[in-house]
Design a protein around this nucleic acid. Structure first.
Lengths: 337, 337
DNA sequence: ATGAAAGCGCTAACAG
DNA sequence: CTGTTAGCGCTTTCAT
């Protein structure tokens, strides 16, 4: 593997000059530079970023910590979309991504900042982490630049990107109300998800505004899990025939609810309207196609990457990005009969 | 940031001893080791892998090069599944993944080996690369350990994992033949895809064995693209009414064919049987649910990661892994009427 | 069992 | 414009 030392020797200059020439400093004679460049090319030189990082004290890498990356996440293409967005933006920069592959066991033996410091990542993007994850506390305490996806923490070294969950849920429920529904249940994620808290708020806001009573027994947690949502919805719907619409905090759970209706012989959307969240790929393919609140997840990843890079490069940029959502009307919701 | 030097000073020993103690060498007095460990903990020490990598000349990182990572790949959850498998295996090791985020422009200005050498990755996993990609040639020439997904190159430094594409396609077509079909078209990917070549072979083998004529005009390329497949199938089916079954080299393309049939008023599976490949998530959700050749893509990623790690650690292990496929019978194929 | 010293490949004052 | 020198944090002979 050729080094700048080799180049220096052959070009007949000092390693300093080589370093300066290669890095485009202005105080190098053009002739010398050309010669050095030539030798470098000829020797098929690649700089050793490890050495550079060591001395410069920055690695030009961004850590990516995906919590709870399960095989099953494929169904829900959330993680992949985020990754795609990050990858897309980072591709335009000189950073690279280090994927922290920490399984549950490894996760617990190494603290967050250990993970980051060992690899000397310049910044981190966190996704899928729960509100009670001990890592989260560390994020705040540590001074490693970090951007969170769907977790609202902001400080001098941390920012976040999310979507307008309250408004998203509010509009969704409002849409249902506009369709004539008054008995609207909600299948939420879980209490430790920021988005669940917000979407619940939107659900309640819409009810309050329409002077509709809120029945807490109709608000259930489906853990963002298809099966769990099915179970929960099955029980709810079989014993509460007056419910005419269900708002779900994720499409995957909406799919679960849909399965429950099939088992119960409930017609969607004739007997029951189902409204999802996310607009995952499956949403438009199932029958009936899911009406849902669309989030631009790719964009979330993109913005997260952009934000961290801006933080690192000292460029001015927002520490909080809230992306809009949009209701996609398909066939799982109908006017109350 | 604390270093072994700091620890050495406080513990009152030399940095050599600290290094040895921390790395679990046996020739360190247990008392000294304990003291060093204590100080390290107290100082919240994290080793600097950059420095270590520099001197050891290995980084404990594996590069991941995903060619053609497009936003649209989400539909086809292939890439994500591979990633999940890799992530899963790597999580059990002390390696980390470096995602080479190279967009098309960047890709062409940096050669493959430059990419790898700059980051000093110990090995590489390549996915989604086409047979005519210039990177491929470099892979062979370079001596960087590498494992390819679905590209059959094997040398002292490169291995690959794939599935039994010939058998998979053969069984699929054979299944169709068993259903009474004699006029079976094929929507393949493209010539530069190894898997397409193999699946075509399987298609032909099955025909030959059954003494069925092969009509090359019925073998079309859909570029692994849903829309392209739809277009191609639309033309094919509208002018060749005698075709009673279509074998597709991917589920995504099968979905495209399905769309074409809808436009043509062809009933699936009554009038036409459609058989896909991959068993993507969508396959079981569309109506009619797709009969398909399932590949365990997650496992491919897992095996690829395992292989590269074994190569790097000098553990014995295969350089070629071929995973089985399996026909998943759902509702898009029926007995020829 | 421990330490001194060299060096991995690179950048960055500081001189000249 | 160019070279000398020091050092980033760590591992590794080679002595002791």
């Amino acid at each position: 593997m050729t080094t700048i030392k080799d180049i220096a020797k052959i070009a007949g200059v000092s390693i300093t000059t080589v370093s300066r020439a290669l890095n485009g400093y202005s105080d190098v004679n053009e002739g010398t530079r050309k010669k050095i460049m030539d030798v470098a090319k000829q020797l098929n030189y690649s700089p050793n970023t490890l050495a550079r990082s060591l001395v410069m004290n920055k690695s030009k890498t961004i850590g990516l910590l995906v919590s709870g990356w399960k095989r099953s996440s494929a169904k829900d293409n959330f993680t992949f979309e985020v990754l795609s967005g990050i990858n897309d933006y980072i591709g335009t920069t000189d950073y690279d991504i280090v994927l922290f592959s920490t399984d549950s066991t490894k996760q617990r033996e190494k603290t967050y900042s250990q993970l980051c410091r060992e690899r000397r990542v310049d910044g981190v993007i966190l996704q899928g982490i729960k509100l009670d994850d001990p890592y989260l506390e560390e994020v705040v305490e540590s001074d490693i630049p970090c951007v969170l996806i769907d977790i609202p923490i902001k400080s001098s070294s941390v920012g976040f990107v999310t979507t307008d969950n309250v408004i998203g849920a509010y509009s969704a429920v409002n849409y249902l109300i506009g369709l004539g529904h008054k008995n609207i249940a909600m299948v939420n994620g879980h209490e430790l998800a920021f988005v669940s808290q917000k979407r619940l708020q939107g659900y309640m806001d819409a009810h309050r505004e329409a002077n509709l009573p809120i029945r807490t027994s109709w608000i259930l947690d489906g853990e963002f899990d298809e099966e769990r949502a099915e179970t929960v919805a099955f029980e709810l719907l079989s014993s509460n025939k007056e419910i005419t619409a269900v708002f779900c905090a994720s499409d995957l759970m909406a799919l679960g609810v849909l399965k429950a209706t099939e088992k119960l012989g409930i017609q969607v959307p004739t007997d029951l309207s189902i409204l999802g969240y996310d607009d995952i790929i499956l949403a438009s393919y199932v029958k009936p196609a899911l009406t849902t609140v669309k989030q631009d997840i790719f964009q979330m990843g993109f913005e997260a990457a952009k934000m961290i890079v801006q933080m690192l490069d000292g460029t001015q940029g927002p520490k909080v990005v809230t992306l809009p959502t949009e209701i996609i009307k398909r066939n799982s919701c109908a006017v109350k009969s």
